[in-house]
Each structure stands twice: as C-alpha cells, then as structure tokens.
Amino acid sequence: MDIGTTTQFAGLLRDHRDELLKRWTANAGTGLRGRLAEAELARQIRELYDALRGTVVTEGELTLDSPAAVELRAVLGELSRQRALHGFTATETAISVFALKEAVLGVLDAGESGSLRLFVAVSQFVDELGLFTFEAYSRTREALIAEQAEQLLELSTPVVKLWDGVVAVPLVGTLDSARAQVVMERLLQTLVDTGSPYAIIDITGVPAVDTQVAQHILKTVVAARLMGADCVISGIRPQIAQTIVALGIEFGDIVTKASLADALMHTLRAGGFELNRRAVRRD
C-alpha cells in the first residue's frame, strides 16, 4: 500500500470507527456460528482494530513485516493462538480477519474517486493479515501436538512400585526406539530414586518387538546391573519369543518369566524375602 492510499485508509479508520467495528464484528460473528461469546468477539475485534489503526497512521508504506506493525503482528499472533487453543479452525480464524473487507466496503462511498483503488489495496493488506493468522495458527498447533506427544510418552511409560525394593514398567503398545529410550532412562532413574535393587520389565502389552527395541531392553538390563540392580523381563508373547530367536538376539543370562506375577515371585525369592520370614518364625 503506497503512502497516498495509506493516508486514505487511516482517515477511513479514524472517521468510521464505530460503524466499521459494528460491521466487522457482525460479519465475523456469522463465520463463527455463535461458538464464541459476542462480548469476547467484540473485544478481540476491537483489539485488532486498535492495533491496525496504530499501524496504519504511521508514515511510510504499509506492510505487515514493517517495524511499525510489530503491535499488529503481536495481536494477530495472540488471536490465532487463543483460537487454536480453543479448538477453532484456521479457516474460522482467517474469516474473522477477512470480515474486515466487507465492513470497509460497507462504509466506502462508491461515488468517491479512488475508492475502488483503496478497496483493492485494503483487500490485499487484509489478505496478508489473514495469511499471517494461518501461519501463527499452525505454529501453535504444531507446538501443541509436540507437547501432547511428549505427555503421551510420559503417560505411556509409568514406572510403578510393586514392593519395597521392586519397581516395574508395564509396557503397553508399540515400542519405538524413542519410547524405548525414555523407558530405559526413567526406569534407571527410578531405581536410584527409590533405592530399588530389583526391576521388572513387563512386555505383556507389547504386540511386536524388533531388533532395535530388543537391543534397548537388553541395554537397560545391562545398565541396571552396572548400577547394582537386577532386571527380570516378563510377559513375552509366543510370537515375540519366535521373533527374538529368529532375529538371533541373545538374551544371555537375563531372567525371563511368563507373567508379571511369576516375575514378582522370582524377585522376592531372589531378594531373600521368604528366607527372612523363616528366620523370623524361628525366633
């Protein structure tokens, strides 16, 4: 937008504030089908309007990436972020911005010279704003998805205490390399935090194991031994046992048990629990 048109646009924004706000809010409202409270929408549009006015009165050519538009960019970015977090689509957010065009058209005097040129320029600028919300929206969604993926990873790998000195990781679902690594690190840290010399890795809920995942589990067991803790693997399904043998993965002297219950029993025995009970009875 050149300087002449910008001055014209600035005049329009200054003289028709109430009218433009009313029309813009109304147009934006139809695009959202009443899913956003009217007062909230009116507030968002008012904020956008004021940021826009602050940008347009500034001297010089009007573009969204100019330093003068920093406030406008911030308001647009925040609007997109809020909409993304509240489950609105990127289209709905962009429509709220595009609604300004119709509002401008409504207050323009069609007879006045240059009004067509002004409208085309404003239209172009508003398109720019709309595209910016699209980008900001997808950035927010991406961050959200990454965060959720991380939370899911945390949720899907709980380390539970089965007994004083015995912790277990019940693994459920497909194990990829990244998740196997998270499991490894969390299990080992839990051994230290709880002072547990025994760990059980239960893979009853794991549908398949490939070489890499098997290697991760083996490395976990060896690392735990270096730290002074013993691991038992339980719940190996028949198919997984066949895979392990077919892949030629050596489980060596690692203790494996059919069920979590068997593994706990084995661990308690290995830890001398029964032995001590007998000693108490003798007393």
Partner: peptide, 12 residues
C-alpha cells in the same frame, strides 16, 4: 549376605 529385600519387606 543379608537378604536385600527382607529388610525392606513391608512388615519387617
């Protein structure tokens, strides 16, 4: 040679 879990058993 002290059992590693016995001392840690819940009721011991």
């Amino acid at each position: 040679g002290t059992p590693s879990l016995a001392l840690g058993g819940p009721r011991e």
